[in-house]
Design a protein around this nucleic acid. Structure first.
Lengths: 220, 220
DNA sequence: ACAAAAGTGTTGAGAGTACACCCATGC
DNA sequence: GCATGGGTGTACTCTCAACACTTTTGT
């Protein structure tokens, strides 16, 4: 009866999404220890007693990617008593969006153990991490549809084609170019920011996101 | 350094909403012990080591209201290290929707200590429970707007006026009767289910929700 | 001149909004 | 017959989806 109220371990896991090479990717790490040794897993770690959950997630994010000031949002808390064979571990999952520019700057952390995987071509995952990832993907799609979160996946200046590409990748379907551009531009959230250089075809206009990002994302 | 990784306590808290007397209400309990003795708080309790988080929430729900098979959904996890003055307590908040019929059946649990409060007229709350409640209300509004969750707040058979009333209460504004009815009926999710009796005016048609509730609610 | 991607408008269908009167019942 | 809430239709606006050709640049 006593251990019925035993304290669980509490971790945060972070699903880190990015779009590179026309593909939606997620960062996974290879486990060095049992259980699930050598399998791929979502990065995470224990919550320290002096930090908030968001601080814990943010700290793990910096440890894995070196990237600071990244969009981070709490996803869901997974607490099935059997999810970790070693004992009760409750994990608060976060998801993070990082743009391809930041990746290139910081891809050097522990490179032998961390790798970007296409969301459409995943290895087998440790624990219940496949469920967590499925949930994260659902949330990402929803957020792209109903909020202005997409700009977290883009560099400061981008073309409308890049923007459209992100939607096509995450929703796994094509959109009509004219309708897409009309829909975005009518929102009046972009401002023109010069033009591409050094391309071997007609250079596209560059845009940047006008609003304070926080303001628009707060739809939820 | 050792207690930096001390295990936190983990609780679930449940925000239980209902609509009665043309008002949106939430169930609160009066605390019998310090800290915040005699203040009102969201019901909750510790997660046992053999149960899932949802089972813990469901168990607390039964303990507070006696009601089973109630709609329950995970809301958010609150883990600020200072949220409980006694030490680190992480709480996974759930929210539940219960219809007024069920309330009347089970309002007898520990009645001196539990009470329904209008969401628009709340007492001061213990801990960070006001934040949790604000968050729950946002989620409820969002869900009402974009999912078929409203039927969880209604008895099996209901009138369109009752349905409209719930929207007016939670969004705190009036809707046009003709447009509202058109919008609902065109969705083709209701079926007629007889008529009211014993009313002192023209009796309204009763409707019931056609779909499997789970199917439609899964929008998120 | 050709390859490659950028850029641009119109039409039709459906959804949302505004708005006011008659109907069925109990007393 | 009157008080109470129930029930109904139309016209306008706006948003969304379908659809194909011209423009600019580098080679």
């Amino acid at each position: 009866m006593e251990n019925l109220f035993e304290k669980p371990l509490v971790t945060v896991d972070i699903i880190i999404f990015t779009v590179v090479d026309s593909d939606l990717k997620v960062l996974l790490i290879r486990r060095g220890v049992a259980p699930f040794k050598d399998m791929w897993a979502i990065p995470g770690g224990f919550v320290r007693s002096d930090e908030t959950l968001e601080e814990a997630a943010s700290r793990e994010l910096v440890e894995e990617t070196g990237a600071k000031d990244i969009y981070l949002e709490q996803l869901y808390t997974f607490g099935n008593p059997k999810r970790d064979p070693r004992g009760r571990v409750i994990t608060i999952a976060y998801f993070a969006l990082i743009n391809s520019e930041n990746i290139k700057l910081h891809a050097t952390t522990d490179a032998s153990e961390a790798k970007w995987f296409s969301i459409y071509d995943l290895p087998q995952l440790a624990f219940d991490h496949k469920d967590i990832l499925d949930y994260a993907l659902k949330r990402l799609r929803w957020k792209l549809e109903y909020t202005a979160i997409v700009f977290q996946l883009l560099p400061k200046r981008f073309t409308l084609a890049q923007l459209q590409k992100i939607y096509e990748i995450t929703f796994h379907k094509k959109f009509d170019k004219r309708n897409f551009r009309k829909k975005i531009l009518i929102l009046n959230i972009l401002k023109e920011a010069g033009a591409q250089k050094i391309v071997k075809h007609r250079p596209a206009k560059l845009y940047s996101f006008k609003g304070k990002i926080e303001r628009i994302i707060e739809i939820f």
